[in-house]
Design a protein around this nucleic acid. Sequence first.
DNA 1: ACACTTACTTGCAATATCGAAGAGAAATAT
DNA 2: ATATTTCTCTTCGATATTGCAAGTAAGTGT
Lengths: 153, 153
Amino acid sequence: MKRSESKSHCPINFSLETFGDSWSLLIVRDIVYFGKKTYGEFLESEEGISSNILATRLVTLEQKGILVKNPHDTDKRKEVYLLTEKGLDLIPVLLEMAGWGARHDPETNAPQSWIAAVYADRERMIRVIRDTVRSGGSIFAGQNSVVSKLEMD
Amino acid sequence: MKRSESKSHCPINFSLETFGDSWSLLIVRDIVYFGKKTYGEFLESEEGISSNILATRLVTLEQKGILVKNPHDTDKRKEVYLLTEKGLDLIPVLLEMAGWGARHDPETNAPQSWIAAVYADRERMIRVIRDTVRSGGSIFAGQNSVVSKLEMD
DNA sequence: ACACTTACTTGCAATATCGAAGAGAAATAT
DNA sequence: ATATTTCTCTTCGATATTGCAAGTAAGTGT
């Protein structure tokens, strides 16, 4: 079975085949939560992805329509990776996985105030995150982060 | 890095390390959506998991507290695999992944009426699914399926 | 007793991953 | 101008994981 062939058209299987490996969702997380956008920023993440794996994942995520690659405005060495609308649709998946992990990892790093805020007004939070990320911001990092808008940390 | 060591305590990474491989969530899906419970039933799924991979996944899912293995009531050859409360907590994750897959796979098998029903009253649906699966039922299969309770298909 | 079913295990080839090193282009420092 | 650094990405060999086919042991049905 080639990687391009799908094993079934179960929607959960489709999702797993699109982003269900060890690294793809961590790249999406880096964009959504931390506002990362370049190869070098993804490489620095604490999970320590190898440079060759990162390169292949960026290619496949772009092929699958989750990311788009654009030239950097001022630095011609850099590429800027952004989420497509299809990629932004992963935000609810990320939130649920973050909620499950925060609940079940006794050593979690997740700020409980943030997890609680998501559960308190989920639909609104999804809209705010989506708008923020679409305009280049993120949940935790940068000037216009979602948490700074909500005046919490 | 051994599989047992965690790369970080990011809640999303914790989730990925727990169930973020190609097969684990498909096993959980088989239980939640189709009421499967035995090794042989999991083996028959259309994605075609190999027997050795299935065996290792059942062990690790049990070690991680997602599943419990019990002897079958009447047939001593069989083992019955059930979700723990921790495993039932994956239902919202499954629903979001199913929603994303159904939206973005043009050839999806997902019944649109079911997807719509989940989005229409998400919190209630999660409770109904959880109660149904906890008592041995499933979303689509069997006498007391969630869809038969809702009188839809 | 005998054949069949069920839950796994084993061996081996194919594939994917990891980790370190390097290549080429563009930016920056001297 | 030249040298050094930065940045994206590639290459290579070792290791780990997966997939496939076959086999084992215990339990069941007749």
